[in-house]
């Protein structure tokens, strides 16, 4: 079981609800993923569109754990008010805290993020801060009281995968007690497997599933990759070696006595 903010889950995959080609495909993808935590948002919409109401009724019927986000917020103040609105609407104190500092990269503003996190923690929120892979920012968020930090692998929606795997490894090594979830930039199941092998606690993704040719199948592929990566981590990976070492025993190698006549041939 996976413990996240005092709740237990079977799946270590957190899945977004945006960008699917249709509500039906989203539904199939959520089912195939096995994800028990899904991200949602809130936006200005016409009361006549009925889209928001229908989406909300459907989401409620799934009986999954909701993680609302503050996507699009640019300041701590905007993010705090949006989080309070999300708590009122979705009836949860969980918030995926996003405070964007740059339009081109959608990179979080670390200063505003930390300020908003402090305020929301004081107000009783369970804060899931979307951060970069910067170690000091992650440490400050943890010192402020965050039990969870969600570093990016690459910019949101880019699908680039692990642009700086060393930085992610460092985060894991330096924050062994913190729940670390890689959020953003994951493009392929192998990216998810790799961060899970590093010991990350979970993966949050959306575009990689929703923009796949067949989203439900991709949701399943990610679920398997995340499970495989976690099992690999728990099983303990072998140490890398600089040189080759034969796995087949050398004792009793055939034609050994002829080697002196053909010195170029090595042992595989």
């Amino acid at each position: 079981m996976f413990s996240l903010a005092n709740k237990s889950f079977k799946s270590r995959m957190l899945l977004g609800t945006a960008l699917y080609p249709s509500p039906e495909v989203m539904k199939q993808s959520l089912t195939e993923s096995g994800a028990e935590v899904i991200t949602v948002s809130l936006r200005r919409q016409s009361p006549n569109s009925k889209g928001g109401q229908q989406f909300w009724e459907y989401i409620k019927s799934l009986n999954l754990t909701l993680l609302p986000n503050t996507a699009g917020c640019r300041t701590a103040k905007e993010a705090v008010v949006t989080a309070q609105m999300a708590r009122d609407l979705f009836e949860t104190n969980w918030i995926k805290l996003e405070v964007i500092g740059d339009d081109y990269t959608l990179q979080p503003d670390p200063f505003q993020l930390l300020e908003a996190a402090r305020e929301l923690l004081n107000d009783g929120f369970e804060v899931f801060p979307y951060s970069t892979d910067d170690l000091i920012l992650a440490q400050r968020l943890v010192e402020a009281g965050c039990k969870i930090v969600m570093p990016w692998a690459a910019p949101i929606g880019s699908g680039q995968g692990l642009t700086d795997p060393r930085a992610l490894e460092t985060l894991r090594a330096r924050l062994p007690e913190t729940t670390l979830i890689v959020d953003a930039g994951v493009g392929k199941p192998s990216h998810a497997a790799r961060v899970m092998e590093m010991g990350f606690d979970g993966v949050l993704l959306n575009s990689a599933v929703a923009l796949a040719t067949h989203p439900p199948e991709m949701a399943k592929a990610f679920a398997l990759a995340i499970e495989a990566g976690r099992m690999g981590y728990e099983a303990g990976l072998m140490q890398e070696r600089d040189l080759a070492k034969p796995s087949t025993p050398e004792l009793g190698t055939p034609f050994w006595h002829r080697r002196e006549q053909t010195p170029e041939v090595g042992v595989d």
Binding site: T17, T39, S41, L42, R44, Q45, W56, M85, L89, S207
Partner: peptide, 24 residues
């Protein structure tokens, strides 16, 4: 939400009204 009924509208008040939406 509990304060909607008791909050009296004033001229030029600036309201933000948001609905649930798909999100990542």
């Amino acid at each position: 939400r509990k304060d909607y009924a008791s909050t009296v509208l004033e001229d030029k008040v600036d309201l933000e009204i948001l609905l649930p939406m798909q999100g990542g």
